[in-house]
C-alpha cells in the first residue's frame, strides 16, 4: 500500500492529532467525573430510584431535562422550584385530569396516565429536586430569578410593588387578574380580579400565598377544592414585607364595571 507523499503527511497529522485529542478528552472526562460526583449534590437512594422511574417511562421523549430531550412538553430542570412539589405531585397522580385543565382554550396537550405508585412519585420528586439543584451554569434562561442552586431566595430584593411582584412570580400563568397595570388570563386558579368580594382579609391571603397546602378544602374558593395543592408555596421566595404588600393588593382588588 504505497501512498503518495502528500497523503502520507496527512495520515501522520491524522494519527497524531487524534491521539492527542483523545488523550485530552479522556483527561477532561476523568476530571469531569470527579467534579460531578464530588461537587454536585449527592445521589441518594431516592434520587436514584426516581432516575429509574424517569427512564422507565421515557419522560425524555416528550419533555426536555437539562434542555435535552423532546420539545413537546415543558422543560423539567427547574420544575420543582418553579411549580412546587404539590403541583408536581398532583400532576403525577392523575396526569390527564390535571393537564387537561392547565391551559385555557381548546388546544390541550394532555399528559398520558403513567399509573405511578405513591412511592414512584416520591422518588421522582426527589430526582427532580436533585436535578434542580445541579449547577447548570445558569441555564435555563430566567431560572436565576427563581432560584440559585435550587435554593429559593427573595425574587426582587427591595421591591414591594405588588404589580412587579405579580409579574416576577408569574401569577398570571394560573390566575386571571384584570386591573390597572395587569392583564392576565390564567384559568388554573380562581379569578382574582374581584377578590375583595370574597372578604378574605390580609392575614388569610398571607397564609394562602405563603403556604397554600395549609389551607383546608372548606376554605378554598368554590370549584377549586384540592387545587390549592397545585399552587407553589411562595414563603421562601418573598420577604415578610413583600408578602404583606402582595396580600393587601390582592385583598383590595375590585372589578370596575
Amino acid at each position: 500500500m504505497e501512498l503518495p507523499k502528500d497523503a502520507k503527511r496527512a495520515k501522520g497529522w491524522l494519527i497524531w492529532t487524534s491521539v492527542v485529542m483523545i488523550a485530552v478528552f479522556l483527561g477532561l472526562t476523568f476530571q469531569s467525573y470527579f467534579y460531578v460526583v464530588k461537587k454536585e449534590p449527592k445521589v441518594t437512594n431516592a434520587v436514584a430510584a426516581g432516575n429509574r422511574v424517569f427512564h422507565d417511562n421515557n419522560c425524555m421523549d416528550c419533555h426536555t431535562i437539562l434542555g435535552d430531550g423532546s420539545y413537546y412538553a415543558a422543560d423539567l430542570t427547574k420544575v420543582i422550584s418553579k411549580r412546587g412539589q404539590g403541583f408536581v405531585r398532583a400532576v403525577l397522580k392523575d396526569p390527564p385530569k390535571i393537564t387537561r385543565d392547565l391551559w385555557p382554550g381548546k388546544y390541550k396537550r394532555v399528559m398520558p396516565n403513567l399509573h405511578l405508585t405513591n412511592q414512584n412519585i416520591n422518588d421522582l420528586i426527589a430526582f427532580l429536586t436533585w436535578i434542580g439543584e445541579l449547577d447548570t451554569n445558569g441555564w435555563p434562561p430566567g431560572s436565576k430569578v427563581l432560584s440559585s442552586k435550587g435554593k429559593a431566595k427573595p425574587v426582587q430584593e427591595g421591591t414591594t410593588s405588588p404589580i412587579s411582584l405579580i409579574k416576577k412570580l408569574n401569577c398570571g400563568a394560573c390566575h386571571t387578574i384584570q386591573t390597572e397595570g395587569l392583564n392576565t388570563a390564567g384559568v388554573i386558579g380562581p379569578n382574582l380580579s374581584n377578590e375583595s368580594a370574597r372578604k378574605r382579609g390580609v392575614a388569610w391571603l398571607v397564609k394562602q400565598i405563603g403556604n397554600p397546602a395549609a389551607i383546608p378544602d372548606s376554605e378554598v374558593a368554590k370549584g377549586y377544592e384540592g387545587k390549592q395543592m397545585l399552587m407553589p408555596a411562595f414563603k421562601n421566595q418573598l420577604t415578610t414585607d413583600q408578602l404583606k404588600s402582595l396580600a393587601t393588593f390582592i385583598n383590595n382588588l375590585k372589578e370596575e364595571k
Binding site: L14, S32, P140
Partner: peptide
C-alpha cells in the same frame, strides 16, 4: 477528528459538568 473529539463539549454546557 481534530475538531469533533473535543467539539463534544457543546453538549456539556448546561448538564451539571464543569
Amino acid at each position: 477528528l481534530a475538531s469533533g473529539i473535543l467539539g463534544m463539549g457543546h453538549h456539556y454546557f448546561w448538564i451539571g459538568t464543569p
